[in-house]
Design a protein around this nucleic acid. Structure first.
Lengths: 212, 212
DNA sequence: CATCAAACTTTTGTATACAAAATTGTATTT
DNA sequence: AAATACAATTTTGTATACAAAAGTTTGATG
């Protein structure tokens, strides 16, 4: 297994802090504070911050620090618009390519999602959801689609962990099942319809979580 | 005006080296060499490298250095596929929004392109072309479209400066003119048709330049 | 002569001290 | 009391020395 470097430690630490919202969007991250918290020098901290900026989780302004990404309402609109465009295109292509390995992984993922019906865990759900959507586009075989979608997810990830739980989970599970079915049956239109519904669902949830 | 920092100097220096192909795709960039060349310490060099990696101009592998991005044939296919999808969508939206300021800028840009008919300059042409396409999608008002397209351009930019000059320039200018017309007339279908033709043209040129 | 391992070299990663820029607080002037 | 200039502090940017990892050479051994 790959050894984990100081820079990795810092990266994981800050990412965890952001995703669990102990570091709130808009918060400034001061390098010296991270030194105290993690116990390494500023150098690996700077490389970690650079990676996080690359991921879209923080934003860096020259000579005045790093800030946890705080998307505006406009950003959300833009992100979801882009997601709809790219994710449907990638999904269509993936559905046509349609490898057996992916179907297997999707099946496992869905099983875990169903398990959440009994005992809900938001963290787990967000993770499963992201993997699920990623899998549905993977067979498209375009790494730039994946990369882009990944970055779009990151942009809004700070807000994914904030919505009133399991009520929506059932609805989401429902559309996911339809997407999976369509993927297996290679029914493109049915699949895209379910996908768009699912994305809109998420968009609505985020808006709710922000009181819009 | 903003002062240019050592990190900026390094960034510009390396970018220039790459774009003018003095640094060939696949070449390893050794930090100490850059120290000699630019005359600053390794710290700003590392931040510059990080930015370049972010731009997609280089790739970094932990513990074994930075390499000038060398896209495979698959990469080219993927980049152009993504470009076709996103750029047409952005163009459609921009065409409908259609601000007067953009029209003005496009007109200026086109004039410069025409000037190249007499005296061709590849560097200048590549730059104008990129700006032109960027302008045509700007009124879409989605920063993530722009960002993505920008990164896609970067991926292939190493190869943009390598094709047998002005023969293609006329053809390209022709489709550009049609795109501009369509943009002004808000004729979506005509515009998209011209855009797709123009993108395919570029794709073909790159393939030629690689002997495919 | 081929192979492998240990020493050596090169290169990247980290720690730390110092410089420059930005921010904050304070005093002075109006 | 408000505004502004200036000093003090905080924070980011840079230089440099050292540590660790990767890559290369050399030489002993089968």
């Amino acid at each position: 297994m790959n050894k984990i470097t100081p820079a990795d430690k810092v990266y994981n630490y800050i990412k965890e802090q952001i995703v669990t919202r102990r570091l709130y969007p808009g918060t400034r991250i001061i390098e010296e504070d991270v030194v105290e918290a993690v116990g390494v020098s500023r150098t690996p901290i700077r490389t970690a911050l650079s990676r996080l900026a690359h991921d879209g989780l923080i934003e860096q302004i020259p000579n005045r620090g790093s800030y946890v990404t705080k998307p505006t309402e406009e950003d959300f609109r833009s992100v979801f618009e882009a997601r709809k465009l790219v994710e449907t295109a990638a999904f269509r292509k993936a559905l046509r390519a349609h490898t057996e390995g992916t179907v297997e992984l999707l099946k496992e993922n869905l099983a875990k999602q169903e398990a959440l019906e009994k005992r809900f865990d938001l963290n787990e759900y967000v993770s499963l959801n992201r993997t699920f959507h990623l899998l549905l586009t993977r067979d498209a075989g375009n790494p730039y689609y994946e990369k882009y979608l990944d970055e779009l997810y990151n942009r809004i990830s700070t807000y994914l962990l904030f919505w009133d739980t399991s009520a929506d989970n059932s609805r989401s599970l429902c559309s996911h099942k339809r997407m999976f079915e369509a993927f297996c049956e290679q029914d493109e239109e049915k699949g895209v319809e379910a996908l768009l519904e699912d994305i809109s669902l998420g968009e609505g949830d985020i808006k709710k979580s922000r009181g819009l």
